[in-house]
Amino acid sequence: MFEARLVQSSILKKVLEAIKDLLNEATFDCSDSGIQLQAMDNSHVSLVSMNLRSDGFDKYRCDRNISMGMNLGSMTKILKCAANEDVVTMKAQDNADTVTFVFESPNQEKVSDYEMKLMNLDQEHLGIPETEYACVVRLPAGEFARICRDLSQFGESVVISCTKEGVKFSSAGDIGSANIKLAQTSNVDKEELAVTVEMQEPVTLTFASRYLNSFTKATSLSNVVQLSMSPDVPLVVEYRIGEIGHIRYYLAPKIED
């Protein structure tokens, strides 16, 4: 028996919002430590890795590890039936072929349950090597979303260049070119407004803007986004999910041929 209860259904709604552009389906791997998801987009250029820890749920029970193949379009439709303030419970019998979502209104006057068929998805897990990144940038998630959106109007690639002064985002195309430079903030009163750069060595990498824009669908989950870069390895874009977990997006760089 698997059962996970979350008081804030909005977290699950935002998680689906954050992954449904990139992925059509994904396997939710549930164990007693929590729910994990790892899936590449169809082009195998980007990967989503999500983790929701069991101690972040109000109630969590997982008698035996269970992998639930979810159609994310269907799951999105079901989660749209939950009000933001509803309590959501996901539950499934061991080796079940369906999962049930129960939404309870705060005053318990309305209880809805939705049963969704599960899919048999082949599990292709990638080994992601632990990496000491040359540059780790933290900036306001809204700022990053704005930069990606603005620059994607100029070209289909964004060059991210990180030095100890700060980070520069550039794009060029038919209409011209654009550069956005963010300096490290010195003393900001609020942590989530800071731009910080931890640099071991300067890095400049090129990425496809459309993937960066897909990643920013996770902006509603966190005030801060973290970008980790090293020469010739995928970019990592990480959003924390409250106190319960994180979503990490990996993006393969564009390389001069």
Partner: peptide, 14 residues
């Protein structure tokens, strides 16, 4: 024009 690489270049299948 830069060529888009694939993740399989960096991550191996488990």
């Amino acid at each position: 024009e830069d060529m888009q690489s694939k993740l399989s270049r960096f991550f191996s299948k488990n």
